[in-house]
Protein backbone atom coordinates (compact mmCIF):
# COMPACT_ATOMS: atom_id res chain seq x y z
CA UNK A 1 0.00 0.00 0.00
CA UNK A 2 1.39 3.38 -0.94
CA UNK A 3 0.01 5.26 2.02
CA UNK A 4 3.38 6.72 2.76
CA UNK A 5 3.76 7.95 -0.78
CA UNK A 6 0.51 9.85 -0.56
CA UNK A 7 1.49 11.47 2.71
CA UNK A 8 4.63 12.76 1.14
CA UNK A 9 2.85 14.68 -1.55
CA UNK A 10 0.03 16.04 0.60
CA UNK A 11 1.81 16.75 3.84
CA UNK A 12 5.45 16.71 3.09
CA UNK A 13 8.47 18.43 1.76
CA UNK A 14 6.80 20.40 -0.97
CA UNK A 15 4.59 22.28 1.46
CA UNK A 16 7.45 22.77 3.85
CA UNK A 17 9.43 24.38 1.08
CA UNK A 18 6.52 26.63 0.14
CA UNK A 19 5.97 27.63 3.76
CA UNK A 20 9.64 28.31 4.26
CA UNK A 21 9.77 30.47 1.16
CA UNK A 22 6.77 32.41 2.37
CA UNK A 23 8.30 33.02 5.76
CA UNK A 24 11.54 34.24 4.25
CA UNK A 25 9.67 36.55 1.92
CA UNK A 26 7.76 37.99 4.85
CA UNK A 27 10.99 39.03 6.49
CA UNK A 28 10.13 36.72 9.33
CA UNK A 29 13.61 35.53 9.97
CA UNK A 30 14.98 38.92 10.92
CA UNK A 31 12.43 39.47 13.67
CA UNK A 32 12.70 36.02 15.17
CA UNK A 33 14.48 35.68 18.48
CA UNK A 34 14.19 31.91 18.96
CA UNK A 35 16.42 29.30 17.34
CA UNK A 36 15.09 27.23 14.47
CA UNK A 37 14.44 24.11 16.49
CA UNK A 38 13.06 25.61 19.63
CA UNK A 39 11.26 22.44 20.56
CA UNK A 40 14.36 20.27 20.39
CA UNK A 41 14.25 19.87 24.18
CA UNK A 42 10.67 18.61 24.24
CA UNK A 43 11.34 15.71 21.84
CA UNK A 44 10.95 12.47 23.71
CA UNK A 45 8.49 14.20 26.00
CA UNK A 46 5.63 13.49 23.64
CA UNK A 47 4.67 10.49 25.71
CA UNK A 48 3.95 10.85 29.42
CA UNK A 49 2.79 7.92 31.55
CA UNK A 50 1.51 6.19 28.43
CA UNK A 51 -0.38 9.23 27.17
CA UNK A 52 0.72 10.03 23.64
CA UNK A 53 0.56 13.35 21.87
CA UNK A 54 -0.84 13.52 18.35
CA UNK A 55 2.74 14.35 17.33
CA UNK A 56 3.64 10.67 17.63
CA UNK A 57 0.86 9.76 15.17
CA UNK A 58 1.92 12.34 12.61
CA UNK A 59 3.98 11.16 9.69
CA UNK A 60 7.70 12.04 9.73
CA UNK A 61 7.29 14.73 7.08
CA UNK A 62 4.66 16.55 9.14
CA UNK A 63 6.76 16.23 12.29
CA UNK A 64 9.75 17.66 10.49
CA UNK A 65 7.74 20.77 9.64
CA UNK A 66 6.68 21.17 13.27
CA UNK A 67 10.26 20.71 14.42
CA UNK A 68 11.55 23.48 12.18
CA UNK A 69 10.33 26.94 13.11
CA UNK A 70 11.36 28.26 9.71
CA UNK A 71 9.06 25.79 7.97
CA UNK A 72 6.24 25.81 10.53
CA UNK A 73 3.48 28.00 9.09
CA UNK A 74 2.10 28.54 12.60
CA UNK A 75 5.07 30.71 13.49
CA UNK A 76 3.61 33.51 11.37
CA UNK A 77 0.73 33.65 13.82
CA UNK A 78 3.12 33.78 16.76
CA UNK A 79 4.78 36.76 15.16
CA UNK A 80 1.44 38.45 14.51
CA UNK A 81 0.34 37.80 18.09
CA UNK A 82 3.51 39.42 19.40
CA UNK A 83 2.71 42.52 17.34
CA UNK A 84 -0.87 42.66 18.58
CA UNK A 85 0.36 42.43 22.16
CA UNK A 86 1.79 45.91 21.90
CA UNK A 87 -0.95 47.45 19.81
CA UNK A 88 -3.19 50.03 21.48
CA UNK A 89 -6.87 49.34 20.82
CA UNK A 90 -10.23 50.35 22.34
CA UNK A 91 -11.63 53.25 24.34
CA UNK A 92 -9.23 52.90 27.28
CA UNK A 93 -6.27 53.56 24.98
CA UNK A 94 -4.39 50.52 26.19
CA UNK A 95 -2.52 47.57 24.77
CA UNK A 96 -2.12 44.20 26.44
CA UNK A 97 1.39 45.30 27.33
CA UNK A 98 0.08 48.36 29.22
CA UNK A 99 -1.12 46.07 31.99
CA UNK A 100 0.71 42.80 31.48
CA UNK A 101 4.13 44.16 30.53
CA UNK A 102 6.52 41.70 28.94
CA UNK A 103 4.43 38.76 27.75
CA UNK A 104 7.39 36.40 27.91
CA UNK A 105 7.29 36.91 31.68
CA UNK A 106 3.61 37.51 32.45
CA UNK A 107 2.11 34.90 30.10
CA UNK A 108 4.56 32.06 30.64
CA UNK A 109 2.66 28.97 31.78
CA UNK A 110 -0.76 30.60 31.40
CA UNK A 111 -1.78 28.33 28.52
CA UNK A 112 -1.26 25.18 30.59
CA UNK A 113 -4.07 25.89 33.07
CA UNK A 114 -6.92 26.81 30.71
CA UNK A 115 -9.87 26.28 30.58
CA UNK A 116 -10.42 27.16 34.19
CA UNK A 117 -13.37 27.89 36.43
CA UNK A 118 -14.14 31.57 36.92
CA UNK A 119 -16.20 32.53 39.94
CA UNK A 120 -17.78 35.66 38.43
CA UNK A 121 -18.95 33.72 35.41
CA UNK A 122 -20.06 30.65 37.31
CA UNK A 123 -18.56 28.44 34.60
CA UNK A 124 -15.40 27.57 32.74
CA UNK A 125 -13.54 30.03 30.58
CA UNK A 126 -10.95 29.07 27.97
CA UNK A 127 -7.98 31.10 26.83
CA UNK A 128 -9.72 32.68 23.84
CA UNK A 129 -12.55 33.83 26.10
CA UNK A 130 -10.13 35.15 28.73
CA UNK A 131 -8.37 37.21 26.07
CA UNK A 132 -11.68 38.61 24.88
CA UNK A 133 -12.78 39.40 28.42
CA UNK A 134 -9.67 41.55 28.76
CA UNK A 135 -10.43 43.25 25.49
CA UNK A 136 -13.98 44.10 26.46
CA UNK A 137 -13.65 44.79 30.19
CA UNK A 138 -10.11 46.13 30.42
CA UNK A 139 -9.52 47.81 27.07
CA UNK A 140 -12.99 48.90 26.03
CA UNK A 141 -12.32 47.11 22.75
CA UNK A 142 -14.53 44.76 20.79
CA UNK A 143 -14.19 41.05 21.38
CA UNK A 144 -12.36 39.34 18.54
CA UNK A 145 -14.51 36.94 16.53
CA UNK A 146 -13.94 33.24 16.99
CA UNK A 147 -11.45 31.87 14.44
CA UNK A 148 -10.55 35.42 13.36
CA UNK A 149 -6.89 35.95 12.48
CA UNK A 150 -6.43 38.26 15.47
CA UNK A 151 -7.85 35.87 18.06
CA UNK A 152 -5.96 32.93 16.56
CA UNK A 153 -2.75 34.95 16.54
CA UNK A 154 -3.04 36.07 20.17
CA UNK A 155 -4.01 32.59 21.38
CA UNK A 156 -1.16 31.04 19.41
CA UNK A 157 1.29 33.59 20.78
CA UNK A 158 0.26 33.00 24.38
CA UNK A 159 0.36 29.23 23.78
CA UNK A 160 3.82 29.51 22.25
CA UNK A 161 5.10 31.28 25.38
CA UNK A 162 4.42 28.05 27.31
CA UNK A 163 6.04 25.80 24.75
CA UNK A 164 7.57 22.72 26.33
CA UNK A 165 5.74 23.20 29.65
CA UNK A 166 3.46 20.39 30.86
CA UNK A 167 -0.32 20.73 30.52
CA UNK A 168 -1.84 21.11 33.95
CA UNK A 169 -5.58 21.93 34.05
CA UNK A 170 -7.57 21.69 37.27
CA UNK A 171 -10.60 19.46 37.34
CA UNK A 172 -11.46 19.43 41.04
CA UNK A 173 -13.45 21.87 43.17
CA UNK A 174 -15.90 24.05 41.23
CA UNK A 175 -14.51 22.77 37.90
CA UNK A 176 -15.60 19.20 38.67
CA UNK A 177 -19.19 19.33 37.36
CA UNK A 178 -18.02 20.94 34.10
CA UNK A 179 -15.34 18.31 33.71
CA UNK A 180 -18.01 15.64 34.13
CA UNK A 181 -20.12 17.26 31.41
CA UNK A 182 -17.15 17.35 29.06
CA UNK A 183 -16.43 13.73 29.75
CA UNK A 184 -20.05 12.84 29.01
CA UNK A 185 -19.75 14.57 25.63
CA UNK A 186 -16.68 12.50 24.83
CA UNK A 187 -18.45 9.24 25.47
CA UNK A 188 -21.82 10.07 23.93
CA UNK A 189 -22.68 8.58 20.56
CA UNK A 190 -23.89 11.12 18.03
CA UNK A 191 -24.56 11.80 14.36
CA UNK A 192 -25.94 9.64 11.59
CA UNK A 193 -22.84 7.43 11.95
CA UNK A 194 -23.62 7.15 15.66
CA UNK A 195 -20.12 7.28 17.11
CA UNK A 196 -18.65 8.84 20.22
CA UNK A 197 -15.21 10.44 20.34
CA UNK A 198 -14.10 7.40 22.31
CA UNK A 199 -14.90 4.97 19.51
CA UNK A 200 -12.13 6.44 17.42
CA UNK A 201 -9.73 7.90 19.97
CA UNK A 202 -9.86 5.23 22.72
CA UNK A 203 -10.96 2.05 21.01
CA UNK A 204 -9.13 2.43 17.71
CA UNK A 205 -6.21 4.78 18.35
CA UNK A 206 -3.13 3.68 16.44
CA UNK A 207 -5.16 2.16 13.59
CA UNK A 208 -5.75 3.51 10.12
CA UNK A 209 -9.22 4.72 9.22
CA UNK A 210 -8.87 4.87 5.46
CA UNK A 211 -5.76 7.06 4.98
CA UNK A 212 -5.73 8.59 8.48
CA UNK A 213 -3.85 7.18 11.43
CA UNK A 214 -6.12 7.80 14.43
CA UNK A 215 -4.37 9.42 17.38
CA UNK A 216 -5.44 9.28 21.00
CA UNK A 217 -7.32 12.53 20.34
CA UNK A 218 -5.59 14.37 23.15
CA UNK A 219 -4.26 17.39 21.31
CA UNK A 220 -4.37 19.32 24.58
CA UNK A 221 -1.07 21.10 24.14
CA UNK A 222 -1.23 21.34 20.36
CA UNK A 223 -3.88 23.90 19.44
CA UNK A 224 -4.11 26.36 17.82
CA UNK A 225 -2.35 24.06 15.38
CA UNK A 226 -1.29 24.60 11.81
CA UNK A 227 -3.15 22.07 9.69
CA UNK A 228 -1.79 21.36 6.26
CA UNK A 229 -5.33 20.56 5.15
CA UNK A 230 -6.54 23.98 6.32
CA UNK A 231 -3.37 25.72 5.10
CA UNK A 232 -3.84 27.77 8.22
CA UNK A 233 -3.71 27.80 11.95
CA UNK A 234 -6.98 26.69 13.58
CA UNK A 235 -8.47 26.38 17.03
CA UNK A 236 -9.18 23.23 18.99
CA UNK A 237 -12.87 23.97 18.64
CA UNK A 238 -12.52 23.97 14.87
CA UNK A 239 -10.96 20.50 15.16
CA UNK A 240 -13.90 19.41 17.37
CA UNK A 241 -16.31 20.63 14.70
CA UNK A 242 -14.48 18.62 12.05
CA UNK A 243 -14.61 15.50 14.21
CA UNK A 244 -18.36 16.03 14.69
CA UNK A 245 -19.13 16.73 11.05
CA UNK A 246 -17.27 13.73 9.67
CA UNK A 247 -19.76 11.50 11.47
CA UNK A 248 -22.62 13.72 10.31
CA UNK A 249 -23.30 15.08 13.77
CA UNK A 250 -24.51 18.63 14.32
CA UNK A 251 -21.46 20.47 15.68
CA UNK A 252 -21.73 22.99 18.51
CA UNK A 253 -20.66 26.59 18.07
CA UNK A 254 -17.01 27.37 18.66
CA UNK A 255 -16.78 28.87 22.13
CA UNK A 256 -19.99 27.16 23.28
CA UNK A 257 -20.22 25.83 26.83
CA UNK A 258 -20.33 22.30 25.41
CA UNK A 259 -17.01 22.69 23.60
CA UNK A 260 -15.33 24.50 26.49
CA UNK A 261 -16.34 21.65 28.83
CA UNK A 262 -15.11 19.15 26.24
CA UNK A 263 -11.90 21.15 25.96
CA UNK A 264 -11.30 20.75 29.70
CA UNK A 265 -11.73 16.99 29.39
CA UNK A 266 -9.44 16.78 26.37
CA UNK A 267 -6.81 18.95 28.07
CA UNK A 268 -7.00 16.86 31.21
CA UNK A 269 -6.39 13.81 29.03
CA UNK A 270 -3.27 15.68 27.89
CA UNK A 271 -2.00 16.36 31.43
CA UNK A 272 1.77 16.28 31.60
CA UNK A 273 2.15 16.44 27.82
CA UNK A 274 4.18 19.41 26.60
CA UNK A 275 2.67 22.49 25.01
CA UNK A 276 3.46 22.25 21.28
CA UNK A 277 1.77 25.41 20.05
CA UNK A 278 1.93 25.94 17.17
CA UNK A 279 1.83 22.22 16.43
CA UNK A 280 1.65 21.05 12.82
CA UNK A 281 -0.88 18.43 11.80
CA UNK A 282 -2.01 16.90 8.57
Amino acid sequence: MSRKGKNMTTGGGKLAAVAAGFLLAAGFVAGLSTPASACEECKGKYEVEGRKSGYLFSNPETRAIQDDDFANGGMLWVEKGAELWNKVDGKAGKSCASCHGDAEESMKGVYTVYPKYVQELGKLENLEQRINRCREANMGAKAWKWESDDLLAMTTYIGYLSRGMPMNVKIDGPAAPFFEKGKEEYFKRRGQLDMACKHCHYDHAGQYIRADLISEGRGGGAFPAYRLKWQKIGSLHRRFKGCNKQIRAQPYKAGSDEYVNLELFVKWRSRGLPVEVPAVRR
Binding site: G191, N244, K245, R248, A249
Partner: peptide
Protein backbone atom coordinates in the same frame (compact mmCIF):
# COMPACT_ATOMS: atom_id res chain seq x y z
CA UNK B 1 -29.74 8.77 17.17
CA UNK B 2 -28.48 12.01 18.73
CA UNK B 3 -27.64 15.35 17.10
CA UNK B 4 -27.82 14.14 13.52
CA UNK B 5 -27.03 16.95 11.04
CA UNK B 6 -30.21 18.41 9.61
CA UNK B 7 -29.76 17.18 6.08
CA UNK B 8 -29.34 13.58 7.23
Amino acid sequence: LYRVMKKF
